[in-house]
């Protein structure tokens, strides 16, 4: 880890001015920054600790939306009774992520900004070439070890998977990322890698995440997060799906459906094609199975990650069936 200085921000304004300073990084839970500093990926000269700021860790919920402070810890949000009741997919995404210890440390804002687990990205000493770390230097993963890499949203510059779970659930339910006064839909917040995989989100210099808000909806209330992985726990998703559904008065017409996928794409992946195919149709297994295949339209594999193209639609299908049957 490179030498750095440490200061605590006492106010949000201090945090904001720190965020605009060169070679400065903001420290909240530390689970990404300290890890990547040890890997040699993050090399701040100045670390500004914002984890002690007051007033940014609340969870507020009313009939219209949930607003979650950026410094709220994952565990706190996962256990919040109102989140569990109104947004079960969010709670489930959170408690299935990482470990109990990490969930006690990591904040909601930091969780969104976690970096990819691509092994090439994480090993600058051995692999200097990484477009995410050093734009234009190349991508070792394209022809390397890539069983966990993305089959959707990749480019010739980068196929690194977005690793998080929470953002997948937020994407399904049209959450807004609050950057101070500015609010950005979460689907727009995360950028596709394209030619500049180093640019991961739509934040401007000097901005910080202050909160997340998620509109309440019947689909969010009837939702689930399904995570499939090799190990039973403490692992990132091979494929995951956040699904919410609203059935009409007849109990079988799908009036609203929200689907997002994780573990298979370079950003949290909204499966609008599947939603469009099922919205207004009857809740019926064969149709759901058929429509779920649309989740991986346009997918490109790189050999070892081919299985994700088979797996992801099945995860979507299972999640829809599970939540539909839970009436």
């Amino acid at each position: 880890m490179r030498d750095f200085s440490y200061v605590r921000a006492a106010t949000i304004d201090e945090a904001l001015s720190a965020a605009a300073m060169p070679a400065t990084m903001l420290l909240a839970g530390g689970t990404t920054l300290i890890d990547l500093a040890k890997c040699g990926v993050a090399e701040p000269e100045r670390v500004v600790d914002i984890s002690h700021l007051k007033g940014l860790d609340g969870v507020r919920i009313d009939g219209k939306a949930a607003t979650i402070g950026a410094l709220a810890r994952m565990s706190r949000v996962a256990e919040d009774p109102a989140i569990k009741g109104e947004f079960p997919a969010i709670s489930e995404a959170l408690w299935q992520a990482a470990s109990a210890q990490i969930r006690n440390m990591a904040t909601i804002g930091g969780n969104l900004l976690q970096r990819t687990r691509c092994a090439y990205f994480r090993d600058p000493a051995t692999f200097p070439n990484c477009n995410k770390r050093n734009p234009g230097s190349g991508c070792a993963a394209l022809t390397g070890v890539n069983r966990s890499h993305a089959v959707l949203g990749g480019s010739s510059a980068c196929i690194a998977t977005y690793p998080g779970d929470l953002a997948v659930a937020l994407t399904a339910f049209d959450a807004l990322v609050h950057l101070g006064d500015r609010q950005v839909p979460v689907d727009d917040f995360f950028l596709l890698p394209g030619a500049r995989p180093d640019k991961e989100h739509a934040m401007r210099p000097g901005e910080i995440i202050t909160a997340i808000s998620v509109p309440a909806s019947p689909a969010a209330r009837r939702s689930t997060f399904l995570k499939v992985r090799d190990r039973q726990s403490y692992e990132f998703a091979a494929a995951s799906a956040a699904v919410g559904i609203e059935l009409g008065g007849d109990g079988r017409t799908i009036t609203d459906i929200r689907i997002a996928l994780g573990g298979i794409a370079t950003k949290p992946w909204r499966a609008r094609a599947v939603e469009d195919a099922l919205r207004g149709t009857a809740f019926e297994h064969d149709a759901i199975k058929e429509a779920s295949r649309l989740a991986v339209e346009g997918a490109i594999d790189h050999g070892a990650n081919h299985y994700k193209i088979e797996l992801a639609p099945r995860v979507v299908e299972r999640a829809i069936l599970k939540i539909g049957a839970a009436a």
């Binding site: 687990r117 092994a119 051995t126 390397g144 190990r231 726990s233 692992e235």
Partner: peptide, 20 residues
């Protein structure tokens, strides 16, 4: 290409957890 062990950590070389 270079003989590097790519999963040289406990997040990628998976040993069982309690839940397994």
């Amino acid at each position: 290409r270079n003989g590097r062990v790519m999963n040289n950590n406990l997040g990628d070389y998976l040993v069982p957890t309690n839940a397994d």
